[in-house]
Design a protein around this nucleic acid. Structure first.
Lengths: 335, 335
DNA sequence: CTGAAAGCGCTAACAT
DNA sequence: ATGTTAGCGCTTTCAG
């Protein structure tokens, strides 16, 4: 029904060859300024748009990259995506976003889908459920450039962008200790995530340095990253049922904080809510609980960096063997 | 570096022609079951993936659709996207998400980008800032299928999916009246949005039916849809400075509710906060203010429907002149 | 039921 | 500085 104008049409109209037109449109130095101007003007006037599909097929590149995150409705990831896009658009790349919803199955399907869709590279933050990495390793082995951010696989030779999770967790826990709390619980993410163990370490270190004994019974994991509110509620019920209830909780993520505060709201009167500190990039969570202290990750910057590293990989003429593992610092926002 | 296997490779290996292989792979009835099986098995074994770019070029279709929303970090839109994806994946379409951040400029750029990127159709929810629709009209005139959802342009002949905004607003306002409030303000979205006038109508209707005089001075618009927190704060300051402060506010959107509650938190002691009811698909807003009554839109369903209508347009053999304007009901969730 | 051949729109090596 | 030609991988007439 609608037939866009092609390079051939322009060539015909201007009595030139398609190659000349193609070159002029990509501003090749070989083309006479005069001719170039004529072509550009004609193209502009007739609203010519390069057909990216044909171009991709010819060049073997799609100028699009895929992003896999657990969900976009999450402050951290939406900010990271903004960072990714800020770089991508500038360099002529298109960003295709895909959500795993922290489900292993959907992650596999989506990654296949994207790879299949001929993206030039992948930006991945692992789903909480994923324990088997073969679907990613396969693609990587086949030569698809991949950069991990936030939730990484450490047994993987490629660029990564993370935050200093250990230090962030330590700061958050320390802030609770400074407020006089001793019995500090930890609501953790899925155990096999990179961020989980790092944040756990920071929590433990803070306790140790303050001479507080670590109690395993005060640590609860959420195997689906809080995707299922029930698992968070169970953890909260557990805390509430303890003979010695925690005075404070260090929560590992935004989503968990949300679920945790919500569960306490439902299950216990306000005066029995513990103090909470946790990782969060939300701009509303502090409203929920006015004394909510949060560890803020530089999400935008992380997205930016990850995208830049990915483009580096994609555009490198030679195989890259030297990988960057960027670690950015967190910021503690206390009230 | 990485060279995927092609139809030609399979044809060569099996001593068949590429056309036979192609047909077998798309399960054509013309192909001998035996041959088909051989081909499918070989393809499977060698991990063949159809090159979607070549396929698109040939077929003149990309099997991808573009979605433009103001932002994904918004419960309503993220739920709508889930709905869109649920249909898209089932029908073999790919979804490319793009955010306008309620900025006219970004909306134009992104829509161009998507159209340029050869999507088969567009699912659009207008940005709050957009008053000039020519960028969309152009594409539509060129034959690009477009379906609007939530924030529509009514002077546009195509399918639309919305909620009954008037009725929803009326219910929310009525709930405030039922709680005994008489002086009810309205914090509205950008004035030129379709949803804004409809929700305003509902608000006015509820007041009228209860014999409450409409006071223009109690209505404040946020021209950037609350994208700029400052504009929300200004409105709240305005309400707080009124000689007769509103006892309750009907807020037009999630984002505005967030900003509004946040602003009150910062600007006034808790006992001076008005009751609030508003449109929202958030699962946390009620935690902010326990008596927050919200009008919930069937976001997932809206996304689903919009996508189905779009596919209908795309796959229709003949030009479509008969358009559906689906209106779904809202649900009032009161506390 | 299978094959040959053309072509989607663009680009790049190889002329000239 | 411009043109010729071939081909990316796939689909689809048309022919057998």
């Amino acid at each position: 029904m609608f037939k866009p104008i092609t390079i051939k049409d322009i060539a015909q109209a201007l009595e030139l060859s398609p190659s000349t037109v193609s070159r002029a449109l990509s501003d090749s130095y070989e083309i006479n300024e005069e001719t170039k101007k004529r072509i550009l003007e004609y193209a502009e006037k007739h609203n010519y748009r390069r057909n990216p599909i044909a171009s991709s097929l010819r060049q073997g590149r799609s100028y699009s990259i895929g992003v896999i995150v657990c969900e976009v409705a999450n402050s951290f990831f939406s900010q990271a995506i903004d960072g990714i896009e800020s770089v991508a658009y500038g360099k002529g790349y298109h960003v295709i976003i895909s959500q795993s919803h922290d489900s292993y199955e959907r992650e596999v399907v989506n990654i296949q889908h994207l790879a299949n869709r001929a993206v030039d590279g992948l930006l991945i933050s692992m789903s909480a459920e994923t324990k088997d990495f073969s679907h990613i390793i396969n693609l990587h082995d086949q030569g698809l450039p991949i950069v991990f951010f936030d939730r990484i696989i450490d047994t993987f030779d490629t660029h990564t962008v993370t935050t200093n999770n250990r230090e962030g967790a330590k700061k958050a826990t320390q802030s609770l200790i400074d407020r006089g709390f001793k019995k500090i619980a930890h609501l953790a993410n899925a155990p096999h995530l990179s961020i989980t163990s790092e944040r756990l370490e920071g929590y433990e270190e803070a306790l140790r340095q303050n001479g507080i004994a670590l109690e395993e019974s005060l640590i609860r994991y959420c195997h689906h990253g809080g995707r299922i509110q029930q698992e968070v509620e169970e953890a909260v019920r557990y805390f509430l049922a303890l003979p010695e209830k925690p005075e404070a909780i260090f929560v590992a993520s935004d989503r968990l904080s949300m679920g945790c505060l919500s569960a306490y709201n439902n299950l216990a009167p306000k005066d029995r809510h513990p103090a909470v500190a946790g990782f969060s990039n939300s701009d509303v969570l502090d409203l929920l609980q006015s004394d909510f202290t949060c560890v803020h990750q530089p999400a935008f910057e992380m997205g930016r960096m990850a995208m830049e590293l990915l483009i580096q990989l994609i555009e490198s003429k030679y195989p890259v063997y030297d990988f960057d593992n960027v670690v950015l610092e967190t910021e503690l926002i206390s009230r």
